[in-house]
Nucleic acid binder design. Structure first.
Lengths: 330, 330
DNA sequence: CTGTTAGCGCCTTCAG
DNA sequence: CTGAAGGCGCTAACAG
């Protein structure tokens, strides 16, 4: 491995001068600079990033801690993060917490140990781990899920509003007994989408029936099981609002398996984009999120905070959009 | 930030002793060790990974360079990699080359500069960048795509065989003019899947018609455009084999848009798993790959090579499986 | 404008 | 078994 000293010797200057040239500092004699540049290319010098990081006690890496790499929602988001990161000179370490606070904790520790330049996290529950980052003054942006009582940059969507629109649309389509399959209680997204559902019902003077509300796990299996339970009831629902993409797929699978016709017997609206929602028969009505933009925005916020650590925390809310397709029209 | 010296002072020993305790070395007086451990927890000491990396000139990071984070095939693979990596004490840096050799080059440079412990790469074309890694003695595993004339650990699937099965199945189902939409010529997967298609035709004494073969980009848009072009021909195909998941989706979209009925008018088989292939109407026949296992295997190979850098390169081929669903039965 | 010096935090000889 | 010393490669402060 060729070091800065090899280059210095080869160019007949000091290591400091080489460093200055490498880092594009002004105040270097053009003649020397040229000699250094030649040595640089001749020796194919590449700065050792690790040494540089130690010296500056900060790296050029961002950790993105998401709760499910298998969920296209999160990968689309990561794409948005990545594009911004690369332009800003950072690389992205993708960490999959699998909704497991312990795993999340491990990744937060790693981010701390590795002196990551910043962290974007979709927290799997309480604020504990995010607090560790904040306490250590590591720039953090929370994405997708809200954390109460902690001043941190946050990027969200208007969950409640989106859920309300979705539910109102089912009501307008003539469905009477509308169920809601939401996510784990501890997640703000689950709570807010449930609240939007309830608000729509109340706004249309419908009763909110507890037996039509299910808490599942934001996964396919959970959506399937919840739908199954709903169908087994004495008076089953004639429509369902599922609070994320994977659970929507699970619910639809269940309906298909049970031979229940969509949208005639049961109408379906899902939250989140679902890849190829339009190819599924019937095509699925969804509340679309600007996933890529979510990631982009979070990355932009992170870059700003890194540049200016003391600026006050801000919170950005992006908007969802209802895409009406076949699964909700009867 | 508390350093090893703070701990040493606090415990009344030298930094060397602390280091030994932290790293679980034997030959430390139990009494001292206990004192050190107490200091460790009292001060909440966390070793600085960057300093450690510099000292040992190796990190605990793997770079996984894939060509499309938007493709569920690759993310499923990454999951397999991640699970193994975590158990082996490595973190995974996910890099998205977007099929762009220049971007790929940048990420390879980053891996080199950051002294990554290893790289898993699905190369976007020629071997140049992989060679740089090999030359620098960075442990590498090539995944999904074959690189000729270079001794490197590789994990593949039986592309030709899978494609042959898929095509033979279309022939057996009674289709006559079977088209093939394959990927970029420079990618081994595209070439091999095309070869499998041709082999199946020849094996069944059918002519291989050049006008039924299209080279696209392994993306949705490419699949759509290729299908469109095929349909515009004088005698359009009555079936199509698409060589990856996204192109299959694109082709199906095109058929739907044009009002062509699947599988009655045109049969469809796609390569790669397609999430929710069974929910799409008609459900899609696919050649399934063991994606998670691909990632797992690559990670295992990488771990082995890191442990034993001089072992000869090996190549593992996993098997595909034909999942017959509705889109190919008439 | 340039070079010398020091040290980021850790680990690993090498003496003792 | 323990501690002192040196150095991984780089950059920032300080003289010159």
């Amino acid at each position: 491995m060729t070091t800065i000293y090899d280059v210095a010797r080869h160019a007949g200057v000091s290591a400091a001068t080489v460093s200055r040239v490498v880092n594009g500092r002004p105040n270097v004699d053009p003649v020397l600079a040229e000699r250094v540049r030649r040595a640089l290319t001749e020796l194919e010098y590449r700065p050792n990033a690790v040494a540089r990081n130690l010296r500056k006690s900060r790296t050029t890496l961002w950790a993105v801690i998401i709760s499910d790499v298998g969920n296209p929602f999160f990968t689309a988001m990561v794409r948005g993060v990545e594009d911004v990161a690369q332009k800003a000179g950072f690389s992205v370490v993708l960490c999959n917490s699998d909704e497991d606070p312990a795993k999340e904790g491990k990744y937060v520790s790693a981010a701390l140990d590795d002196q990551m330049a910043g962290v974007i996290i979709s927290p799997s529950g309480r604020a504990t781990h995010v607090n560790r980052l904040v306490d250590a003054r590591v720039p953090v942006v929370v994405i997708d899920r809200q954390l109460r009582g902690i001043a941190v940059d946050t990027v969200l969507v208007d969950n409640e509003h989106g859920a309300e629109l979705a539910t109102a649309h089912l009501i307008d389509s003539g469905y009477e007994r509308i169920a809601c399959i939401t996510g784990p209680r501890r997640l703000s997204t689950a709570a807010q989408r449930l609240r939007g559902y309830q608000r729509a019902l109340r706004g249309h003077r419908r009763a909110v029936r507890e037996e039509l509300i299910r808490y599942a796990d934001f996964r396919e299996e959970g959506g399937y099981a919840a739908m199954e339970a709903l169908l087994r009831q004495d008076s089953p629902p004639d429509a369902v609002f599922a609070a994320n993409n994977l659970m929507t797929v699970g619910a639809v699978e269940c309906l298909v398996d049970q031979g229940v016709r969509i949208p005639e017997e049961v109408g379906v609206v899902g939250f989140d984009n679902i890849p190829w929602a339009h190819l599924v028969r019937p095509s699925l009505t969804t509340v679309g999120q600007p996933t890529y933009e979510l990631g982009r925005t979070a990355a932009l916020l992170l870059a700003e905070r890194i540049a200016e650590p003391s600026r006050p925390a801000s919170s950005v809310t992006l908007h969802t959009q209802l895409h009406v397709r076949e699964s909700s029209r009867r």
